[in-house]
Amino acid sequence: MSSIGIVTHQLAHTHHNHIDPKQIWMFPLQFLSIWWIWTLHTLFANRFDTDSRYHRISSLAIMFLMITMTAFLGSDLFENYGLFIGFYAVIQIIIAGLYINSTKALNESKEYASKCGIIIIIGTIIIGASFLFPDPYREITLVLGIFFEMIAFILVSKNKNVPPVHKEHLVERIGLLSIILLGESIISLTTALRDINWDALSVIAAVTGFIMIGLIWWIYYDSFHVMERLKAMKNGFTLIYSHFFLAMGFVILANVIRHAILNDLNQNDFRVLAIVGMCFFYVGKQTIYFKFLPPFRKPIVINTLICVFITVGSTFLPKIEYALIGVTIGMLYYTIGNFKFTLTKDVSRFLD
Score class of each variant (00 low, 15 high):
T315V: 14
S75T: 12
S33Q: 03
M26R: 06
V143L: 13
I34E: 06
L305V: 13
G313Q: 02
G326Y: 05
N197T: 15
Y289F: 15
C116V: 08
S52L: 05
I213R: 00
L65H: 03
D195T: 13
I126Q: 06
I24P: 02
I187D: 00
M331Q: 08
K319F: 01
L193N: 05
G284K: 03
W36A: 07
S33V: 02
S75C: 01
T304D: 05
Q267T: 07
I257R: 04
F341S: 07
K158Y: 13
F31G: 02
A61T: 11
G330P: 00
L293G: 00
I93W: 03
L181Q: 08
S202K: 06
T335V: 11
A89W: 00
I37S: 06
I121M: 10
I300T: 05
Y282T: 03
G145H: 02
N101S: 15
G209Y: 12
Y333K: 01
V207H: 04
T315S: 06
F31T: 00
I196A: 14
N338A: 05
K22M: 14
T191V: 13
G330F: 03
L142C: 09
L32S: 09
Y334A: 03
W217G: 06
S185D: 11
S58R: 03
A45Y: 10
L106A: 08
H9F: 15
M150L: 13
V226Q: 08
A71R: 13
M1Q: 07
F48R: 04
N161M: 11
M1C: 01
M26V: 04
N255T: 09
P299A: 08
L43P: 01
R53Q: 11
K291M: 06
I257T: 11
